[in-house]
C-alpha cells in the first residue's frame, strides 16, 4: 500500500532521452522518511538517471514523481529551490567550484540561503575535520586528490542537514578505510533522521551494512528489503 506520507513516490515512471528507447521503465516505488537504501545495478542501468529524476534535473517522459508529498511536475522555480534545500546530493564528478576553498565550497549551501558566516563557521570546520579535511580547508579543489574532493563533496551535501541525501558512487575514489568512515557518517545521518539513497557498485561496502537495496536492471527497478 502506498503511504500518503511517503518521502518519495514514483508512479509508472518512464524516461527516454529524445526519441530513443526508454532507459527507465515502469518505475513504481515509495520510500518512507528515515529510510536507507543502496541503489545498485550494472553500469548504464540508469542509476544516475534515477538520481537525476529524484533531484529534479530531469523530467519523466511519463508517470508521476512525488517528493515530500509534492508532485514535482507542478513545482514553481521557488518551490523547486525549497525542495532542493531539503535534499543533499553528492555527484560522481564532485562538482566543486574551483575558485572557492574547500571550506567555502562546503559552506555554500548555507551561504545561498542567506545564513551569516558566524552562525555556521564552527559547524563547517567541525565537519571538515570529521571527514579528514581539517588540514585542507584552505586548499582549492585543483590541489585536492580525488578522495579529498569526494569527501569535500560529501561534506557539502550534508552540511545543511538534509532530509534526503542522494549520493552517486560516494566511495568510488577513497580507500576502504575512508569508505567505511564515510559510510558511518551516512549511517549517523540516517540515525538522525535523514533518508539516504547511495548509488554504488561497491558490494563490499554494501555487505558491511545489510540494508535494503534498489536494484536497477534493463531500466526496471526491483526493491529488496
Amino acid at each position: 500500500m502506498v503511504s500518503s506520507h511517503a518521502l518519495i513516490r514514483f508512479e509508472n515512471v518512464g524516461l527516454r532521452y529524445g526519441v530513443g528507447q526508454e532507459v527507465l521503465r515502469d518505475i513504481n516505488f515509495h520510500l518512507q522518511p528515515g529510510s536507507f537504501h543502496f541503489l545498485t545495478g550494472p553500469s548504464g542501468a540508469g542509476k544516475s538517471t534515477l538520481l537525476r529524476l529524484l533531484f529534479m534535473s530531469l523530467r519523466p517522459s511519463r508517470g508521476l514523481v512525488y517528493l515530500f508529498g509534492r508532485n514535482i511536475a507542478q513545482n514553481t522555480t521557488g518551490q523547486r529551490a525549497d525542495l532542493r534545500r531539503r535534499i543533499g546530493i553528492v555527484f560522481q564528478d564532485f562538482r566543486l567550484l574551483d575558485h572557492l576553498t574547500t571550506w567555502e565550497n562546503v559552506a555554500l549551501p548555507l551561504r545561498v540561503v542567506g545564513r551569516k558566516q558566524n552562525d555556521y563557521r564552527e559547524d563547517v570546520t567541525e565537519l571538515l575535520k570529521w571527514v579528514g579535511l581539517g588540514d585542507r580547508m584552505h586548499a582549492y579543489p585543483a590541489v585536492l586528490s580525488g578522495g579529498e574532493k569526494q569527501r569535500a563533496a560529501i561534506a557539502r551535501a550534508v552540511i545543511g542537514k538534509p532530509e534526503l541525501l542522494l549520493a552517486d558512487e560516494p566511495t568510488g575514489n577513497v580507500d576502504p578505510q575512508m569508505a567505511r568512515r564515510l559510510l558511518r557518517l551516512f549511517i549517523e545521518l540516517n540515525r538522525l533522521g535523514t533518508s539516504i539513497i547511495i548509488a554504488t557498485h561497491d558490494y563490499q561496502l554494501m555487505s558491511q551494512f545489510p540494508g535494503p537495496r534498489m536494484q536497477l536492471e534493463n531500466g526496471r527497478l526491483e526493491l529488496f528489503e
Binding site: F55, T77, A81, D82, I89, R95, L108, P109, V112, G160
Partner: peptide, 11 residues
C-alpha cells in the same frame, strides 16, 4: 550556475 542551482539557491 549548476552548482548554485543544485545546492538550493533561488533563481
Amino acid at each position: 550556475v549548476a552548482v548554485l542551482n543544485f545546492v538550493g539557491a533561488e533563481e
